[in-house]
């Protein structure tokens, strides 16, 4: 299970509407609205669903952008569940 913390940047005046939409989705917990522009959200889902999850958020009317702030994992075996291209890449030193 991945736990993802992120901010949703919304169009002015749309914060409540977006919050209600996200509340309706089981994977998301909202923690409040900042200055009518940003929502603090935590998502909980199996790692392989992460990309699709954020796309769904972006697809919500009124969402301008999603800024991911933190990501942790719990109770799952990464190598088995997550495709290779999403795994961490070693930093190049050149």
């Amino acid at each position: 299970m991945a736990i993802l913390g992120f901010l949703t940047h919304v169009l002015a005046g749309q914060a409540r509407v977006v919050e209600d939409t996200l509340k309706g989705m089981p994977e998301f917990t909202t923690y409040g609205i900042h200055k009518d522009s940003y929502l603090v959200v935590v998502a909980e889902a199996p790692s392989e669903q992460l990309e699709g999850l954020l796309d769904r958020v972006r697809g919500v009317q009124g969402v301008l952008a999603v800024y991911v702030t933190s990501l942790t994992r719990e109770d799952e075996d990464l190598e088995k569940t997550v495709p290779a291209h999403t795994q961490p890449v070693r930093n190049k030193t050149s």
Binding site: M1, I3, L4, G5, F6, L7, T29, Y31, G32, H34, Y38, V40, V41, V42, E44, Y67, T69, S70, L71, T72, E74
Partner: peptide
């Protein structure tokens, strides 16, 4: 629960970003 702790941490980090480095 550990899970709740982690969720709380994730929320806290997101909140701090609003005030800080962003």
């Amino acid at each position: 629960l550990r899970r709740d702790f982690l969720k709380g941490t994730a929320a806290a980090i997101a909140l701090s970003v609003l005030a800080g480095p962003v």
